[in-house]
């Protein structure tokens, strides 16, 4: 589904990602990405979805080199993302924005998205007026429209309590499994990631540290040293 090779991204002189290789399969499991603050997790999603041009390396999506494709093109090809800092249309009602995008992407099953993200009670309120936690769900809902093949979610649990985050992750896990799609989820809540992700990648200082099952990652001494510490 997604194959990243030798990916490097810089912000001016700051190298945010160096030489990252990663493969994500479309096999219906959540692929978690963890790592300390500033490890380059968001940058990785940015490079995959086209928000940032990499300085080196390639991104293949469904066996096609898409490194130079536009954001909108990628979205229309089924690559969707949500944002670490909520990005919704504050001035539109929840329904207006979901409907606008659904129409554009030719998705006539908006009800499914509304149900999965539990937004039925908020449809006619402006997104700017609803609670932050609900706005997060609108953000994810926007990404779910159009039956994407690859979901890129940047800290969907940010601003939610641990219980809410776990709940959201369980939702996402079931959804991804049902639809047999691929999903990369960046998250700082390690417990939720280990509980729900089938695969986990650890980034540290812009480098790929390890990828494996939650058990393998927990047992990996480099990961423990760099990130998990004694807590794991």
């Amino acid at each position: 589904m997604l194959k990243i090779e030798n990916l490097s991204v810089s912000y001016g002189s700051v190298r945010a990602l160096s030489d990252v290789d990663l493969e994500v399969l479309g096999d219906g499991i959540l692929h978690g990405v963890i790592g300390p603050n500033g490890a380059g997790k968001s940058t990785l999603l940015d490079a995959v979805c086209g928000r940032r041009r990499p300085v080196a390396g390639t991104v293949h999506y469904r066996n096609e080199d898409i490194t130079r494709r536009s954001v909108a093109w990628r979205r229309r090809q089924g690559m969707a993302r949500s944002f670490q800092r909520t990005s919704v249309f504050q001035d539109l009602t929840v329904h207006e924005q979901l409907y606008l995008v659904a129409q554009h992407l030719g998705d006539n099953r908006l009800d499914d998205v509304i149900e999965v993200m539990d937004l039925a009670g908020y449809l006619h309120q402006k997104a700017g007026r609803i609670a932050y936690g609900v706005q997060r769900r609108v953000d994810v809902a926007l990404a779910l429209i159009g039956r994407p093949h690859l979901l890129l979610l940047d800290e969907p649990g940010a601003g939610l309590s641990a219980a809410e985050t776990l709940h959201l992750f369980e939702h996402l896990r079931d959804l991804v499994r049902e639809r047999k799609i691929a999903a990369v989820v960046v998250e700082h809540d390690v417990d939720a990631v280990f509980a729900c992700c089938g695969k986990v990648t650890v980034l540290d200082l812009g480098r790929h540290l390890a990828t494996g099952t939650p058990q393998e990652i927990r047992a990996d001494h480099r990961v423990v040293a760099a990130y998990l510490g004694t807590a794991a």
Binding site: R51, A72, D91, H104, L142
Partner: peptide, 24 residues
């Protein structure tokens, strides 16, 4: 029309529109 709805959404959050597959 739809064009109006798209324009207002772009005005409000252009990046999200691109990330929703729209040419802005």
């Amino acid at each position: 029309s739809r064009l109006g709805a798209i324009l207002r959404a772009v005005r409000e959050n252009e990046e999200r529109m691109r990330f929703s597959g729209f040419d802005t």
